[in-house]
Amino acid sequence: MSTLVPVDLQPEVSTSDAVPPRERAFSLSNLVRTVVAGYLPLTIAVLVVFLPLLWMVLSSFKQPGEIVTLDLRMLPADLYPENYRTAMTTVPFGQFFLNSTIVTIVGSAIKVILAIFTAYALVFVRFPFKNVIFVLILVALMVPAQVSILPNYVLIAGMGGKNTLWGIILPGLGTAFGTFLLRQHFLTLPGSILESAEIDGAGHWRRIWQIVVPVSVPSIATVALVTVVSEWNDYIWPLIITDKPDSMTLPVGLTLLQNSEGNGAGWGIMMAGAVLVIIPILVIFAMLQRYIVAGLTQGSVTG
């Protein structure tokens, strides 16, 4: 492969057009081609993603007068934190943030533990009908949560779970995705380690926590991160099961904010709200994107 040479952005200026482009890695035409075919599309793609998000952050610091204007400016005149304060006082944003955090942490922790236990049992514990159970989990993976909202609403509301955090968390706790992903990983673990642990007298409990979990940290991290992201962003279920601000999560609370600010002046406040719901996940993603991308695109390579 001739293009394996790392592309350097400092071309030799003396290169003339007469030199056949194929022979010189650093020729002008090669550089032009690299920029046009390589960097230009990438830059456009990255800008298309980031400009709206940048606009959100900038607008969240703008005064109403800078938003309700025909004379658009990119940067806010000065950092105006009032939008965040207004967002906090118009609706109980602190409460939403707290609720979202509790739902995400509690829900994810339980889901990850349930996934570890179920996957371990499916792979390492003898049981009849294991294949049937696995197929039922696979099918559950394909059942969309969206079509279950009405029956689940009737069920949870009947249990008194309306406007409670447990009512938000409970229906999503069963985890087919995490079980599936961890099972696939556990199957690749060498059985000999577990056998020798068994001979040494380690029970299942110790085998889970001292052997299987420590050697499966990347897979567990993948499951945990994907779960955290989806719990934090979850909208349709919390929207339906809560109608009092005390128990709302951040995405549902944002809807409330949207309803209370009808005119153009409210955009700054709404962008502040959007920042609060988007930025935490963006930061987690920036730090740990490897696991998140791997988890979310699962199945694409195995077909």
Binding site: L114, A115, F117, T118, Y120, A121, L122, V125, R126, F127, I133, L136, I137, A140, V143, A145, V147, S148, L150, P151, N152, V154, L155, L170, P171, G172, L173, G174, T175, A176, T179, H204
Partner: peptide, 24 residues
């Protein structure tokens, strides 16, 4: 042991994923 480990998750899936399909 299998039941102790897997049953909570399996029950949750049954109640909140499979049952709603029938109820719907």
């Amino acid at each position: 042991i299998f039941l102790a480990l897997a049953l909570p998750n399996l029950l949750l899936i049954a109640v909140f994923t499979y049952l709603p399909l029938i109820n719907n």
